[in-house]
Simulated scan of single mutants.
Amino acid sequence: MNFAQLLFPDFSLILCGYLICRYTALNRSVWQQVDSLVYLFLFPVLLFRSIVKSPLDLEAASSLIGAGLSLGVCAIALSYSLPYWPILGKRLDKRDHAASAQVGFRFNSFIALALAERLAGPEGLLLISVLIGFCVPLFNIGAVWPMARHANTGFLRELARNPLIIATSSGLAFNLMGFSIPAWLDPSVSRIGAASLALGLMAAGAGMELRTLRQGKLLAMSVLMVKHLLLPLIALGMSKLFGLNAMQATVLLAFSALPTASTCYVLAARMGYNGPYVAGLVTLSTLSGMLSLPFALGVLR
């Protein structure tokens, strides 16, 4: 499989967003509004539709769900254990670590959905949607709790108003209750979802920023090592431990090697942390994904 060709459409949109933001009148202030539109409306609609549109057999998907949640717990534990590592821990700024640890386990759902459909068609799209549905609440809890604790803000309030948690939990509830989107409404919902993929990837490119990483290089290297090296290796072990079939293993490996969520810096900035530093980590993670995805899908698989 030609992974460069497979990944080119997504990374070309990221590059397009970067170039438009840097060299046209559509600068960062414009893309901040696009971020909000995608995060608060377009992407939740896409998640909801992806989960609702196909009947979900929890028994058949239980192994993949178990492997995904186990991978997520390992990722969160590794990311937050960094300050306790010998030698390394004493050199990390605790506040910056609280804001940037989320980079080590969150994932770019836009790339996940686009990639899964090209890898495995509609079935792959459903499997990655199931992983997103179960892992987004876990990862958002992992991301919000340390920052809420350090910033003394309401943890439950932050979770309750998170649009991704609302979309995934309601989508899972609708699916399991047997509801579906009416045929007359589905084309409109589908187009909203398509818009979220393109705009989300371009917004990720527009948010790329490297200058803020001149300080905190050790923290950046540690978090990205967890995200792009250790997680694919753990995913390989989980796929064997849970006895996943070939398609499920492929989806889990792709899931483990994804770039981090472009909304990491939005969450960090909104909660009063060093947003530009986290944006730099998101940039490096996006670039690292060009290596970790072929590594996971080509070498490990």
Rank of each mutant, 00 (worst) to 15 (best):
F3R: 05
A4K: 03
A4W: 02
L6R: 06
L7Q: 12
L15N: 02
Y18Q: 01
I20F: 08
T24I: 11
A25H: 11
Y39F: 14
F41G: 14
L42V: 14
P44R: 07
K53T: 11
L56N: 05
L56F: 07
A60S: 13
A60Q: 13
L64M: 10
L64S: 09
L64V: 12
G72H: 05
V73E: 04
V73M: 12
S79E: 07
S81M: 07
P83S: 09
P83Y: 06
P83Q: 05
P86I: 03
G89C: 10
K90A: 15
L92S: 13
K94N: 08
A98Y: 11
S100P: 02
Q102I: 06
G104E: 01
R106E: 03
I111Q: 03
L113R: 08
A116M: 07
R118C: 10
R118F: 02
G121R: 06
P122K: 13
L125S: 12
L126I: 06
I128P: 00
I128S: 03
S129Y: 04
C135N: 13
F139H: 13
I141K: 07
I141H: 03
A143G: 08
P146V: 14
A151K: 15
A151Y: 02
N152R: 15
L159K: 01
A160P: 02
A160E: 05
R161V: 15
P163I: 11
S169D: 01
G171S: 06
A173T: 12
L176D: 00
S180A: 14
S180K: 08
S180M: 00
A183Q: 11
W184E: 10
L185R: 02
L185N: 02
S196I: 12
L201N: 01
A204E: 02
A206M: 08
G207N: 15
E209A: 03
L210E: 00
R211M: 11
R211C: 02
T212H: 13
T212R: 10
L213C: 07
Q215K: 13
K217S: 14
K217C: 09
A220M: 11
P232L: 08
K240F: 13
K240M: 11
F242D: 06
F242Q: 04
N245F: 03
N245M: 09
Q248D: 10
V251W: 04
L252N: 07
L253S: 13
F255M: 14
S256K: 03
P259Q: 01
T260E: 05
T263Y: 04
A268R: 07
Y273E: 06
G275A: 12
V278C: 06
T283L: 06
L293I: 15
A296N: 13
A296H: 07
R301C: 13
